[in-house]
């Protein structure tokens, strides 16, 4: 699996495979949301029940992990986990996953990083925020600072590495099957199930849970 192909340039800005696949994922999410929320009534039909279940489960997760006073983060967390779920599982519909590109995962991790720092500053004030680095012992200050920067690095590299590794393994599997003159019918199925569906959903859940823990931990 090579790096993302560049399809062309607009005013010097490259249009990469990652960019196009992100748009495709966005369109898919919009279509799913439009289908699920069409014609909402007080006595819900089947589609509305699915939508309500998703929102209720996510609200419960945010309330449990971050605390009942931080429910304003719930829409962003649901958007994040939906985007990650749809884009990590892109392998099963034949697209190169947008999150298999380090640019995409670093962007998402930086969003979490800035949310953490901003909310920590806002809720603890500048003095409390700076004092937080001296806890529990003052000589741990450099370790605390490095640990603060280690969070987005580990978030982005974990997602990128899992998706890139899965993509490379699937590409190697398909080329091995083609080399052995087997038609790839049944053999790739368990690999898709493990690498694309299970690993993709688990990684999206991990990313969102860690973002929630970091943001709520910074606000104490």
């Amino acid at each position: 699996m090579e790096g993302p192909k560049i399809y062309g340039y607009i005013y010097g800005f490259p249009i990469t495979q990652t960019l196009v696949n992100t748009w495709i994922v966005m369109v898919m999410i919009l279509v799913v949301c439009a289908i699920l929320t069409k014609n909402m009534q007080k006595r819900p039909g089947k589609a509305q029940v699915i939508a309500e279940t998703i929102v209720t489960v996510m609200d419960g997760l945010v309330g449990q992990t971050m605390g009942k006073d931080k429910m304003r983060f719930a829409p962003w967390m649901l958007a994040l986990i939906m985007f990650l779920a749809f884009s990590n599982t892109s392998g099963i519909y034949g697209l190169r996953s947008p999150t298999a590109d380090l640019n995409c995962t670093v962007g998402l991790a930086l969003m979490t990083f800035f949310m953490t720092q901003y909310n920590g500053l806002k809720s603890k004030g500048l003095g409390g925020y700076l004092k937080g680095f001296l806890e529990p012992m003052p000589f741990l200050l450099p370790i605390n600072i490095i640990g603060e920067f280690a969070n987005p690095v580990s978030l982005s590299f974990r997602l990128f590495g899992n998706l890139l590794g899965g993509g490379i393994i699937m590409a190697l599997l398909y080329s091995a099957l083609a080399g052995l003159m087997f038609f790839p019918i049944v053999i790739p199925v368990p690999f898709h199930f493990y690498f694309d569906i299970f690993s993709g959903l688990l990684q999206s859940f991990i990313f969102t849970m860690l973002s929630m823990v970091f943001i709520s931990g910074a606000m104490d």
Partner: peptide, 15 residues
């Protein structure tokens, strides 16, 4: 959850 977090350094080596 814990196992996926523990996976990370193995993924670093893979990268």
């Amino acid at each position: 959850l814990g196992a996926a977090v523990a996976e990370t350094t193995g993924i670093y080596g893979l990268i």
